[in-house]
Computed example of a mutant assay.
Amino acid sequence: MESLEEIEAVFAVFDDLDNNILEEIEVPEPRNPKVYFRDVDPFRDYSEDSFKMRFRFSKNIVLNVILPKINDSLQSETQRGLLISPICQLLTALRFYATGSFQIVCGDIMHNSQSTVCYIVRRVSRALASLMQDFIEFPQNLRKTKDSFEKLGCIGRAPGLENIVGAIDCTHIKITKPRGIIHTEQYRNRKGYFSLNLQVVGGPNLMIHDIVVRWAGSTHDSRIFRNSRLNIKLNNNEIDGVLLADGGYPCTRYLLTPISNPSTPQEERYNKVQIKSRNSVERLFGVCKRRFPCLQIGLATKLSTTANIIVACAVLHNIAVEYNDTIEVEDDVVDVIPNNNAQPSNSTRTTGTGDGLVLRANIIARYYTF
């Protein structure tokens, strides 16, 4: 997993050329006294259910869990003018994540100007993204994670897979066409729209254990993994376990993939167990995008801010899972789940290292022959 500074450095060069985007005004407009939460108090005006529907978290989690962790980062460096309190900044950003709407619309709802909302979203997103090292990591007790994955994959007499510490996959976050970049087409994915390809490793309880957000939409999933720190850690045995992946990845001693064309009942049983266990990361994408529709609708911010928003939403998702802060989502929010039977065009689908193929064959022969 990369640090926040490394993620921002990737997009810094592009963003320097992109400062003329109307939505990304660096300094907010002069503030007007009518702009602030003097007449709007979400904690007072909304019931618990209405508050959670609008901000995606309960009042208690916002006040006692999220705010204390970023309160100092949101304090104003000066005392000039009428200041926007940290809690008002946090609620404004949460409202943006929860709607994915134009910033000017979020500003009207929260009684702020568009440029002020832009400034707040950028500031709050960076503050939340700075918590990445604290909230996005592999658990200390991997034994519990392995047992949960083993139970998750059981199908009848077929046991679940052992020694699994996570499921890896990528998802596309839609963005507007980047400006100031010579090779903008590298951000256009195979479905025809501009995106960032986000790599995530998820646990059996939908917790995010690792995230990589720096690659353009046209980059293949296996290339992202091959160049990630996670690959190095697994290869050096720094993480004791194996990841589950789809057919777009090569089969290695620490990456188990399904059989491309199962020809025996044993291989079919293995595939069913592998797919059932791996679906946890796909459900993670669905839950996260439903909680934060901005990730599904798309982001029109500059690249560094977009990366921070994505990481911020990942941090918030883990906080919600850790504190069991569930949410009822609207029926009109569409969840795009990848098709497990889709045939990736990349040739790595049928490849793998000798150790990986031998490991997979041994697992099939030992557990799924009956």
Rank of each mutant, 00 (worst) to 15 (best):
A167S: 05
E322A: 15
I310C: 02
D45Q: 13
E5A: 12
Q89I: 14
E29D: 11
C313G: 06
Q274G: 14
Y36S: 05
H172I: 13
R226D: 13
T92R: 03
P68S: 14
N64C: 11
S3P: 02
N340I: 09
V334R: 11
A314S: 10
L74W: 04
S228Y: 00
L82N: 13
S280I: 07
H183P: 01
H172G: 14
A127H: 07
M110L: 14
C118N: 03
K272S: 12
E185L: 14
S115D: 01
S101H: 09
N163A: 05
T306H: 08
V287E: 03
H183L: 14
K69R: 15
E185M: 14
Y367W: 14
A245R: 04
P344S: 04
V117E: 10
T305N: 02
K59R: 13
S58V: 05
G217L: 12
S73L: 04
F285D: 02
Y46I: 00
N71Y: 06
K144I: 14
I7S: 09
T116R: 11
L74I: 03
R56Q: 12
L91R: 04
I164V: 00
V281W: 05
K144Q: 08
T257V: 10
G354N: 00
S50C: 13
C154V: 15
G298C: 06
L243N: 00
E162M: 01
Q114E: 03
K34M: 08
E162P: 11
G156A: 05
D39R: 07
S304R: 04
R190A: 00
K289M: 13
N163C: 04
S113Y: 02
G203Q: 00
S113E: 11
R122E: 08
